[in-house]
Design a protein around this nucleic acid. Structure first.
Ligand SMILES: Nc1ccn([C@H]2C[C@H](O)[C@@H](COP(=O)(O)OP(=O)(O)OP(=O)(O)O)O2)c(=O)n1
Ligand SMILES: [Mg+2]
Length: 890
DNA sequence: GCGGATCAC
DNA sequence: TATGGTGATCCGC
């Protein structure tokens, strides 16, 4: 709570540092940042920025009234909803949820479904809280949720402490760093593409209702008493949400005088509908579909064609062209949705059109039931629209991240830049950069279309887990484990998978989740081999009473390289064999890819998802039947690394300089020199480079991370320059620690990461919050500057909390490439069991579109490192210092 | 490489 | 009575 107060009027004199000013009217910004066209140099288009919603069911009209003057280019299918736009008191959550109902209020926030992206507008929150409270009272689940929540609170408190300890001088530097990040993001802004995200409305429920029309007007939930997958809009009015336990939803409805109808899910049905939908979408351009109810399509070509025909004039002004393209895009998408509805016999879809997929996804949710929206095509209008939105709407920002940001006083997109210093202090560098970039509306605009590489494994893991009634009998548990292993092996066989790592997941009756992994030297795939390893793992945990068991296999043979290159084994069997032998001699494994790795790629983009988040994998083609769908969207990404540049120079004086444009030359050169120097230092310092398996990936260093604790001596008065030390972490005994990471840990000072790696395709994850944020690094650096060089800093706390989830996807490219393979493997089998169906369902979707388009951006390289400094954690390592970098503050 | 955490659908 | 399943990334060891 106090954090916010402190954040409120930041101690920092924002006036002093005012570089980019991302949220300032376009007119005051360099043209390069404003204009749209990729090639154009342009003017600040004025009326073109209007958001275009196409609303309404009247399809024909849509393309018609897309008049330039008419801001209504968007379609809104839902008539009643007062909609967000009107009153932005959006931040209605947290705050207004006054503790009206005493105790009840203290439990609702523990659940995901109460903090959904969609929000609970229009619902009786009090009642919902009351019901949740009453029905959860005394349950093991609630106890666990509260425990987790306490941990989160502690984590946030610690974060706030760190933020509060920052000095003004440090904040000035941090703001500058944030400005640099924003500048880098502007560099990647690209208006050349027309990205579209199509998302079916209440998908599962829509399919069920279509097949059972009598349910249309009733509150319907797909799922069971235990868990609900989704609900129709009628039920949502009563507060029913995805991931909500069925019995709670039922009670919720009952108390409001209605009866909730439950429908069991039929995954195969949804799967086949998804195929129909993909076919329609595929006719509008290359696409990628990670989940059965959502797809990303690049309609650029179609948009340009249509716009050109309408203009029918070679010399149209840029503004006229843009306007024509806007109309073309809106009408095309309206047609696409109409076709989907027709082919699926009534299922409606919502869509978003934007210069990148992240924004398109948000736009798709904007006019949700049966509507669409086109986000403004000028920077100014775009930011005006985006700035007011809650960050929770950004894919990758979930319940936890939202809370952390909230505690910093950051709730909307525009808040990010305003409080960039706090953001950088609280999150890791990767995450901070991601956040800042997204807050400006910049994100990847390319699809990850892949050829249907035969024999190359794209997925990183495959698993099978099941929840059951509390079971404390060891024999029974082993029996379950055996079944899971067998089923998993069968699933693996379908894709010819073999892996080296087996992970057992277990959830105790207290809901506490634990995972234990063990790697083998050989690739394994048989039920016996998997079970043998799993059994050994579970044995160490017994006796115990569990409610869930799961088995996962990863570190696959023929896994695709992080950079996208196919695995050696698959492409060059003989050579692979040779290495296999060599390898065998030295050590067990060195598995491949699995780790992290940043995938650099081309361009601009980075991932659309936040670091740490899911990235879809594009997988395969439809035909093979396999393909999984995963979840999240993705983008691509590459995490990239940061560049370290200390580019402070220009900015400081601040004056009129602004962002983006800056003089590239000088800056760039200096940067290059800087990088080179750092590289040299890094090389010298970290001899060992392979501790972790992927230690030595040539290109970009992996992600940065840990650090030392910041003992920070809070004080430190302003000064005219900063001396930022470069260091390498060492173990207590003087030995170099974690070689692989050492490289990354070589510190730099104010780093701005630059570019990035973008990758081609899929999405990327979001970094989690960091405990070891850039801030800490900076603080550490600052502290040491004072000469004290903490020889060893201990740190503090512990706990870490982070994680993520994701999924797979499918795209369109392959289809064209490899026509027929479909027949070769029969689409899924008839099985009908229950739980297993889900696995089949998720693994099965996918589709790709047509030709692959390589994204156009150029990629930057990046080198960098970032630093470290742990805020917490009992890190007992110490630092070795190298020549410091001096930054003039002016 | 391991384990916990977060997110998405 | 009763709170899912699959997959991925990040971070810090
Ligand atoms: N926690 C979740 C979330 C979703 N789903 C399933 C059911 C949904 O129908 C489908 C698509 O998810 P969406 O988030 O797109 O939700 P809906 O399509 O149901 O509704 P909306 O109209 O908001 O898109 O995925 C699920 O099983 N479990
Ligand atoms: Mg949907």
């Amino acid at each position: 709570m106090e954090a916010s107060s402190m954040a409120d009027d930041g101690p920092i004199a924002e006036a002093q540092v005012m570089p980019p000013e991302p949220w300032r009217p376009a007119a005051e910004l360099p043209a390069s940042m404003v204009s749209g066209g990729s090639s154009s140099s342009t003017s600040t288009g004025r009326g073109t920025g209007v958001a275009k919603h196409i609303g309404s069911k009247s399809l024909p009209a849509a393309s018609t009234w897309v008049g330039a003057a008419n801001p209504q280019h968007n379609i809104s299918g839902n008539s009643d909803t007062g909609h967000s736009s009107v009153n932005h008191t959006a931040s209605e959550n947290a705050h207004d949820a006054a503790p009206g109902t005493s105790a009840a209020h203290s439990t609702a926030h523990l659940y995901v479904f109460t903090a959904e992206k969609g929000g609970m507008a229009g619902c009786d929150k009090e009642l919902q809280q009351q019901v949740i409270y009453e029905l959860s009272q005394g349950s093991k689940h609630l106890q666990h949720a509260q425990k987790q929540d306490a941990k989160l609170d502690q984590r946030i408190q610690q974060m706030l402490t760190t933020v509060q300890n920052a000095t003004e001088a440090q904040r000035i530097t941090l703001n500058r760093q944030g400005d640099a990040m924003a500048e880098a993001a502007e560099t990647r802004r690209d208006w050349s593409r027309w990205c579209c995200v199509v998302d079916m409305d209440m998908f599962f429920a829509a399919v069920e209702i279509r097949d059972q029309p009598c349910l249309a007007e009733l509150p319907v939930a797909v799922g069971g008493m235990g868990m609900i997958s989704t609900a129709n809009y009628v039920a949502r009015r009563y507060g029913v949400r995805s991931a909500m336990p069925g019995f709670i939803a039922q009670e919720l409805c009952r108390r409001q005088g209605v009866e909730l109808k439950f429908v069991r899910p039929d995954y195969r049905k949804y799967q086949s509908e998804a195929q129909v939908i993909r076919e329609v979408i595929g006719s509008f351009g290359p696409y990628e579909s990670h989940t059965s109810d959502e797809a990303r399509v690049d309609i650029t070509d179609r948009v340009r064609d249509r716009a050109a025909k309408r203009l029918n004039d070679d010399s149209s002004s840029e503004e006229a062209i843009r306007e024509a393209e806007i109309e073309a895009a809106a009408s095309l998408v309206a047609e696409m949705r109409a076709q989907i509805k027709e082919k699926t016999r009534g299922l409606t879809a919502s869509a978003g059109i934007a210069p990148n997929f992240t924004l398109a996804k948000m736009a798709a949710d904007e006019n949700k039931p049966d509507g669409q929206m086109l986000v403004p095509r000028t920077r100014e209008a775009l930011l005006e629209w985006l700035g007011k939105k809650s960050l929770r709407k950004l894919g990758g920002v979930g319940k936890v991240t939202e809370r952390m940001l909230q505690s910093l006083g950051v709730e909307t997109f525009s808040d990010v830049w305003r409080r960039r210093a706090d953001v950088i202090l609280a999150f890791t560098q990767l995450r901070s950069e991601w956040l800042i970039e997204r807050s400006l509306g910049v994100a990847p605009n390319n699809l990850d279309l892949h050829e249907d590489d035969e024999g190359v494994v794209r997925r990183k893991s495959i698993s099978n887990e099941r929840t059951f009634r509390d079971q404390g009998d060891t024999e029974a548990l082993f029996q379950i484990l055996k079944e899971l292993s067998k089923e998993l092996s069968d699933d693996m066989a379908k894709e010819s998978l073999a892996g080296k790592t087996v992970t057992v997941k277990l959830k105790r009756n207290t809901f506490e989740v634990v995972t234990r992994a063990q790697s083998t030297k050989r690739w394994i795939s048989s039920p016996e081999d998997i079970y043998e390893v799993a059994k050994e793992i579970l044995a160490k945990e017994c006796p115990c009473t569990l409610r869930l068991l799961g088995v996962r296999v990863s570190a696959f043979k023929n896994a695709i390289d992080a950079t996208g290159s196919a695995a050696l084994d698959a492409k060059q069997p003989k050579l692979a064999k040779f290495f296999e032998v060599q390898k065998g001699q030295e050590e067990g494994e060195k598995a491949n890819a699995s780790m992290t790795t940043t995938r650099s790629t081309t361009g601009t983009s980075r991932s659309s998802s936040p670091p740490g988040m899911p990235t879809p994998m594009v997988d395969c083609d439809v035909d093979v039947d396999e393909a999984c769908d995963g979840k999240k969207h993705g983008g691509d990404q590459g995490c990239d690394v940061s560049d370290l540049g200390l580019r402070e120079g220009s900015g400081i004086a601040g004056s009129g300089d602004r962002p983006g444009s800056g003089e590239p030359d000088a800056a760039e050169e200096g940067q290059a020199a800087e990088d080179a120097r750092r590289m040299a230092i890094a090389a010298k310092v970290s001899p060992l480079s392979s501790f972790f398996k992927n230690a030595q990936q040539p290109p970009p260093p992996p992600a940065p991370q840990s650090g030392t604790n910041t003992s920070t001596s809070a004080e430190h008065q302003a000064q005219d320059h900063w001396t930022i030390p470069c260091f390498v972490i060492e173990e207590d005994d003087g030995e170099e620690a974690l070689p692989a990471q050492s490289t990354n840990e070589v510190q730099q000072g104010v780093a701005v990461s630059s570019a990035a790696t973008g990758s081609s395709g899929t999405s990327t994850p979001t970094p989690a919050l960091g405990r070891h944020s850039v801030a800490s690094q900076l603080m550490l650096a600052a502290t040491s500057t004072k000469q004290q060089r903490p020889r060893s800093s201990t740190a503090g706390v512990d706990a870490s909390l982070r994680g993520q989830t994701a999924s797979l996807a499918s795209s369109s490219a392959a289809k064209a490439a490899s026509p027929r393979r479909r027949s070769r493997s029969p689409r899924r089998k008839p099985t009908g069991g229950k739980p297993r169906d889900i696995a089949e369902f998720w693994r099965g979707a996918t589709g790709m579109g047509s030709t692959a388009r390589t994204s156009s951006s150029s990629s930057t390289s990046t080198s960098s490192t970032s630093a470290s400094a742990a805020l917490e954690g009992g890190d007992r390592r110490t630092l070795a210092w190298y020549e410091p970098v001096v930054v003039d503050l002016c």
